[in-house]
């Protein structure tokens, strides 16, 4: 057994333990913390199976944003009446069902076809025409750009859904409570020191995404996290959701993407097709605006529905 396989075994045991703890923890807070650990172990596993782009996304979204959001929710819902545990018959049935369902992918994994089907050769062959060096970015923004466009639409729909949970009088108001600024708090120091560094890192990850692991979504997530840090420290407040510039920022990325996609009909002969020689600059412009939109949408999703009256 090689050292690499030993490490893989160790990672799998960690992932299973963190998953077990997520399901079995007594309180929701413990479960949410275990989930963050689970996401980080998964990110390491993604590195081990040669998918650094997915690893970055898993660490940023799966572990960071989702985990942080669920930890916040678990503390906020702490006083809720505890649900009674499911009865033993329900649990036994659930175990049987889960074992049955888990057996299906397990059998599929053991019986995967050999030689494995792969689009890697085709993806690499067409990559020079996009001017990109990272094939995953190529898939996301050229070959399967329609998936990425629709994914952004899903984000906007989730934001609209979240906003619409506010009562009518708060529509367009400010999300969340205003955090009190406390100069002596370490959070204030972090909120002042980290964002300049984080913004540079976020933009770097966006920029290198064309050729190296990274991209618009991972960069935007880091920008959103920096904004959230400043909001939590009380240094800035989330803008009112009625602000026109904010709403424009939310739709700018997907809107520009859609315009470029429609223009493809005229200048390149198809939806989301790029004209030869202009693919790279077009993709970069779309990615920059997408990053800003993603950062704004994620920050607003984390902030939740409006809870304070809109400014007059």
């Amino acid at each position: 057994m090689t050292i690499g396989l030993l490490l893989d075994f160790f990672l799998v045991i960690l992932a299973l333990a963190a998953g077990w703890w997520t399901i079995g923890a007594k309180d929701s807070f413990g479960a949410a913390v275990a989930f963050v650990a689970y996401g980080l172990v998964l990110a390491l596993i993604w590195v081990r199976i040669a998918a650094p782009d997915v690893a970055l996304t898993e660490a940023a979204i799966g572990s960071g944003l989702t985990g942080g959001m669920l930890i916040a929710a678990s503390t906020r819902l702490e006083s809720a009446r505890q649900a009674t545990r499911a009865g033993s018959v329900t649990r036994r049935l659930a175990i049987a069902l889960s074992a049955l369902v888990a057996a299906a992918p397990a059998l599929a994994v053991l019986g995967l076809p050999d030689p494995p089907p792969s689009l890697a050769t085709a993806a690499m062959a067409a990559l020079p025409s996009t001017g990109l060096g990272n094939p995953v970015t190529g898939v996301l923004l050229a070959y399967r750009a329609v998936d990425t466009l629709l994914e952004k639409v899903v984000l906007i729909l989730a934001l609209l859904g979240t906003w619409s949970l506010a009562p009518d009088r708060l529509w367009g108001g400010l999300p969340g409570r205003k955090e009190r600024r406390n100069a002596a708090s370490p959070l204030t120091l972090l909120g002042q020191v980290l964002p300049p560094i984080g913004i540079v890192i976020g933009l770097h990850i966006l920029w290198v995404g064309a050729d190296e692991p990274g991209g618009a979504f991972q960069g935007g997530t880091i920008l959103a996290a920096m904004g959230m840090l400043a909001v939590m420290a009380g240094l800035v407040d989330v803008p009112a959701t009625s602000r026109r510039w904010l709403r424009l920022l939310v739709v700018a990325g997907p809107g520009l993407f859609l315009i470029v996609g429609l223009a493809g009909f005229v200048i390149a002969g198809g939806f989301l097709a790029y004209p030869a020689g202009f693919a790279k600059p077009l993709i970069l412009v779309v990615e920059v605006v997408l990053t800003l939109s993603v950062a704004a949408i994620l920050l607003l999703l984390l902030a939740g529905p409006p809870e304070r009256e809109p400014p007059r």
Binding site: A50, L119, P135, V139, L140, R144
Partner: peptide, 10 residues
């Protein structure tokens, strides 16, 4: 790895 499934996972 095959970049297409990786992008779909993202």
């Amino acid at each position: 790895g095959d970049p297409v499934p990786q992008a779909l996972v993202i």
